[in-house]
Simulated assay, not measured.
Amino acid sequence: MKTIPIITFFLCTVMYAHAQLNIVPKNDGLKEYTVTNAHPYDSLTNVEKRSFTSLPGQTLYMHGVKNDRNGYWDAFYTVNFLTGDDRTVYKAVNISTTPSKEVVGKYYEVVKVWTKTDYLSAGCCLLLREKESGDEMYYNPFRYPLSMTCIGYYEKLKRFVGQTFLSLAKAVETEDGQVITPAEGAEYRCVDIGLKMNSDGAFLLMEGADGVRVEAFPIGGDEVYEFVSTARIGQLEKRYGEKYGKLIAFRKVDTGMTREMVIAAWGEPYHKSEVKKEGRTLETLRFSDNRYVELLDGEVQYVRIY
């Protein structure tokens, strides 16, 4: 009989402890951004992963992608597709496709942005309000990443007008649609910017010494895919010396460079490995387009472009 109070006390203690548990709900990885908590917008970036959380309050223009006659598949929805199973497509035909005419050539205000990261995927949803009609839709920016241009980004591109550029010997398109490849180092001047429908969007209009004008596409920051500005060449030469600065500007890698120089020229590698032996470090870096670099104690010893 004397054990009963002890057992009763023990049970009460367990029940009390259970009642005091701090139950934390499972984090579904969903984050919401509005104009009140959006990250500061950097107008050097367009609509891309690194800028998604800064887009609330910005205006986007849908110029569309190439060959979109069949519409946009699973890109525009009537609900937030990150929060449930409902994935009803905006003004759909054939269940999952929004016709091009319903979304292209229009301006949109970014009302909200949601990002979601879990063990299986990373996603983003933009709540857009079409400026003219007031229609709202939920947009997946990963589906057609080059279909929209942020107006703030477009306006910032005007900084390139009047600058001098040198060709990187890449194919470019002229105003009349011809494709040419200017010689490496050929001088051009940026005379205007434009936004082409059903293309990669905003571009720089470059004029060569022969008066021929060609299109070039900015790729973030102060870089242009087909050209390098003389101002950037000067900056890189000041930082890395005349020899290596110019090589980096023309996106070339050579022996004697440091790891920092390689990344400045080619960007981050998609694969890297490191081996230590007898106090020395051999590092290998692999880049897109079959480019391969070996560094010994941080200095490039071998470069191969397949």
Results as ranks from 00 to 15, higher is better:
residue 1 M to V: 15
residue 4 I to L: 10
residue 6 I to T: 11
residue 10 F to Y: 10
residue 15 M to W: 09
residue 15 M to K: 00
residue 16 Y to M: 11
residue 19 A to V: 01
residue 21 L to D: 08
residue 22 N to Y: 02
residue 22 N to C: 02
residue 24 V to K: 03
residue 25 P to D: 10
residue 27 N to G: 04
residue 28 D to P: 13
residue 31 K to A: 06
residue 33 Y to W: 01
residue 37 N to G: 09
residue 38 A to C: 12
residue 39 H to C: 05
residue 41 Y to A: 02
residue 45 T to M: 05
residue 50 R to I: 12
residue 50 R to Y: 04
residue 51 S to C: 08
residue 53 T to W: 02
residue 57 G to F: 11
residue 59 T to P: 01
residue 60 L to A: 06
residue 62 M to V: 12
residue 69 R to T: 09
residue 69 R to L: 07
residue 72 Y to I: 04
residue 72 Y to F: 13
residue 76 F to N: 05
residue 77 Y to R: 06
residue 78 T to P: 08
residue 81 F to S: 09
residue 83 T to A: 12
residue 85 D to P: 15
residue 88 T to M: 04
residue 88 T to C: 05
residue 91 K to L: 06
residue 103 V to R: 04
residue 104 V to M: 10
residue 105 G to M: 02
residue 107 Y to F: 13
residue 108 Y to M: 05
residue 114 W to I: 01
residue 116 K to A: 03
residue 116 K to V: 03
residue 127 L to V: 03
residue 129 R to I: 05
residue 131 K to L: 14
residue 134 G to Y: 07
residue 135 D to I: 11
residue 137 M to N: 05
residue 139 Y to S: 04
residue 143 R to Y: 06
residue 148 M to G: 14
residue 148 M to R: 01
residue 151 I to C: 05
residue 151 I to F: 14
residue 155 E to T: 09
residue 155 E to W: 01
residue 159 R to F: 14
residue 159 R to T: 15
residue 163 Q to N: 15
residue 165 F to A: 03
residue 167 S to F: 10
residue 169 A to I: 04
residue 170 K to W: 01
residue 175 E to W: 09
residue 176 D to W: 09
residue 176 D to P: 12
residue 179 V to R: 03
residue 180 I to R: 04
residue 188 Y to G: 03
residue 188 Y to H: 14
residue 196 K to M: 04
residue 203 F to E: 05
residue 206 M to F: 03
residue 207 E to A: 05
residue 207 E to F: 00
residue 208 G to W: 00
residue 208 G to F: 07
residue 223 E to P: 13
residue 224 V to M: 02
residue 226 E to K: 11
residue 237 E to P: 14
residue 247 L to G: 00
residue 251 R to W: 06
residue 253 V to H: 12
residue 254 D to K: 14
residue 254 D to V: 06
residue 255 T to M: 02
residue 257 M to N: 04
residue 258 T to P: 06
residue 261 M to P: 04
residue 269 P to I: 00
residue 270 Y to S: 12
residue 279 G to I: 10
residue 280 R to H: 14
residue 284 T to Q: 13
residue 284 T to G: 09
residue 286 R to P: 10
residue 289 D to I: 10
residue 295 L to H: 07
residue 297 D to H: 00
residue 300 V to S: 08
residue 305 I to G: 07
